[in-house]
Design a protein around this nucleic acid. Structure first.
Lengths: 154, 154
DNA sequence: GGTAAATATTTTAATACTAAAATATATACC
DNA sequence: GGTATATATTTTAGTATTAAAATATTTACC
């Protein structure tokens, strides 16, 4: 099983890089804007959705988290006036989240910085290396994983 | 900033793959052995350390977590008889963790399966693709990250 | 040998996450 | 029109995580 030992090394490298990038982004978002990466992900999804916002269930699906998680992470964003929660007019069971003006303004600044940070992380890779990297990631056989990510974005 | 958009895509792919693999491993470890990936990481580090075990601080460093985390994640392992906690004989401040016989037996089974799962994840990559993948990961510029991972292993 | 400082770990308070139970509302069928 | 079922979300209980405060013990120095 020589193959499996190299695979373990690759997995540890992958996990380490992912953890380190995430930690770095989270630290910067918190110190510069007072927002965690989880909250940033929500703001990002709502920004993309525009004025119609997103239903709780759709938001959860996009971020690949449970609905309970969405309820809890939106709570402080609502408390801080970055997100508004409305109830569907036809169906009172439905919760619709949208960005407030304040949320839009803050997210816009965050997105600029976030894009720049991530650009820097990959800045030493050539265009073809970046493509090769993504191609290899798509070749991984991950049990129970039909498709792609969903979390984090800008 | 075309470059930054592709970088974001690569980051989302990287994060998605990492999350999905971790989730898959965690789910399998829990259902087959009743142990989470966090606890598995501790057992793995202690197995590697052998009969002398590891001090709390060293264990924390190796897993790249806080000492408080180590205290809490070892607690159920001790409760379940997989790990033993001893106090240093010269210095009573020191906590030394070792695997029990039961812990060794369980970890041995877990490691076999874990290696196989990870081998499968990377099984569609050629030897050179695997090497290219690791080389690219090492070329990433991650702020505040001097070196490599630390977590998870077998 | 007693106090101050240093060291090692644990505890506490907060965030984030899941799975499962609970709640609220709407729909369907009799 | 009333009850059962289905749907959408929230709440609860448990695990994992960090940062900062608290505790325990040793070391150093007067």
């Amino acid at each position: 099983m020589r193959q499996s030992r190299d695979a373990i090394r690759a997995w540890l490298d992958l996990l380490g890089a992912s953890n380190a990038i995430k930690k770095s982004v989270d630290t910067q978002l918190r110190s510069d804007f007072g927002v965690s990466i989880s909250r940033f992900d929500i703001l990002s999804a709502l920004e993309r959705a525009g004025p119609d916002g997103l239903r709780a269930g759709v938001l959860s699906q996009q971020l690949m988290v449970t609905e309970g998680n969405t309820t809890q992470v939106t709570a402080p964003l609502i408390r801080d006036g970055l997100v508004k929660r409305n109830t569907g007019r036809d169906d009172a069971r439905i919760a619709i989240f949208t960005l407030t003006k304040k949320g839009e303004r803050l997210f816009s600044k965050m997105a600029t910085d976030h894009n720049h940070w991530i650009g820097t992380v990959f800045s030493d890779l050539s265009k073809s290396e970046l493509a090769a990297f993504r191609r290899i990631l798509r070749k991984l056989n991950i049990p129970g994983s039909t498709a792609q990510p969903g979390k984090d974005a800008a």
